[in-house]
Design a protein around this nucleic acid. Structure first.
Lengths: 190, 190
DNA sequence: ACTGAAATTCTAGCACCGCTAGCGCATCTG
DNA sequence: CAGATGCGCTAGCGGTGCTAGAATTTCAGT
């Protein structure tokens, strides 16, 4: 059975290489540069090999997205537990979200702009995604008051997402972006 | 000069037909269905004709987007002037924006998600776009208080845009979407 | 150790994309 | 009526995601 174990291990390694190569390529040159031919050349296999691991290019992007969900969830968690007041928690979480989007634009794109075939607001959603949402929710919860916590969480998330996407597509005045994030947070703390 | 006038008129009509066909096709089947071959077939000319009118497919989408800016600006204006209080103005404008996005998803996509080659937060931006922003700004202005009006306007816009885009890509719980819009507006009125 | 079977990887190709060079025809000018 | 001009066409380039089927490698049974 050792020989089969080796093959499985090598196959898993190749799959990892596909994913990390896709992510690196996307972060370096954007998702448009991540083509099946390019990816295949990069891992030094032929195109059809990709399809023995994934259903298609979208599925590869989805796996990268899930990786991103995990990293974001971790960052949001650290931001939240590092706060001393509920208000500070919201502020830190909001800033962590915005910073993450700025630091990893391609990753953010896979997570929240492209890759529609992932389930989102359901129990079938990836665990890491639910964890990230949970961090946001946990931060908002003490400040909900009469408002429904999920509505509040989704709205705050929507606000952050909107700022992030308008900023990244150069639709906002760049010089006021920071002030906008500040104001958004203020409106959800008050 | 009458013969040349006729030719110019016919050429302008053909250009209009390209634009309206692109928009109709996009609204009916999404922008992915708007290909040069499809568009050419629809207007009953060959592909290269498109390039005698526009630099490329992106330019066609940009023209559709500008059309959308004008329509949105008109809707926002009507919403704003139909209000009796500053708070109601913000509420009506916010709802008009969200309703517009829901009613014309492909148009909204061209305006605020794709088509990056249009100038946005500068004086070179299309007039209709500036007009739309102006309506938003006018609505927010009375409620700015100590906050910078442009920062407030961009932030409110960002919030709306975020809700709209997360909703359209099915990343939100559909049953709470309305409540989220309500809450967002409330947070910017209070 | 050798041969047939099974699994794996490759080459080659499909149908499509945006875009363009350059030919042929229709129209206008002298 | 001949030549020049401009317009729309056919055909093609290099690219895309994806796949059928050949070829190679690896395994299993005698």
């Amino acid at each position: 059975m050792s020989i089969q174990a080796r093959k499985e291990r090598e196959r898993a390694e190749r799959e990892r290489r596909i994913i990390t190569t896709a992510r690196e390529l996307a972060e370096a040159e954007g998702w448009d540069a991540v083509t099946t031919r390019r990816l295949a050349a990069e891992i030094e296999y032929s195109q059809p090999v990709l399809y023995s691991h994934f259903k298609g290019l979208d599925a590869i992007m989805a796996v990268v997205a899930v990786e991103g969900f995990a990293e974001l969830a971790q960052l949001l968690h650290e931001a939240r537990v590092g706060a001393t007041t509920p208000e500070q928690a919201v502020e830190r979480v909001g800033r962590a979200y915005s910073d993450f989007a700025d630091a990893h634009p391609a990753l953010y794109e896979a997570m929240f702009i492209r890759a529609v075939d992932l389930p989102f607001a359901t129990p079938q959603a990836p665990e890491a995604l639910q964890a990230g949402y949970g961090e946001l929710r946990e931060a908002m919860s003490p400040l909900a008051g009469d408002d429904n916590v999920d509505v509040l969480t989704e709205t705050f998330w929507g606000g952050l997402h909107g700022m992030v996407t308008l900023q990244r597509s150069r639709r906002l005045n760049p010089s006021t972006y920071g002030a906008c994030i500040d104001l958004l947070i203020k409106r959800f703390i008050g």
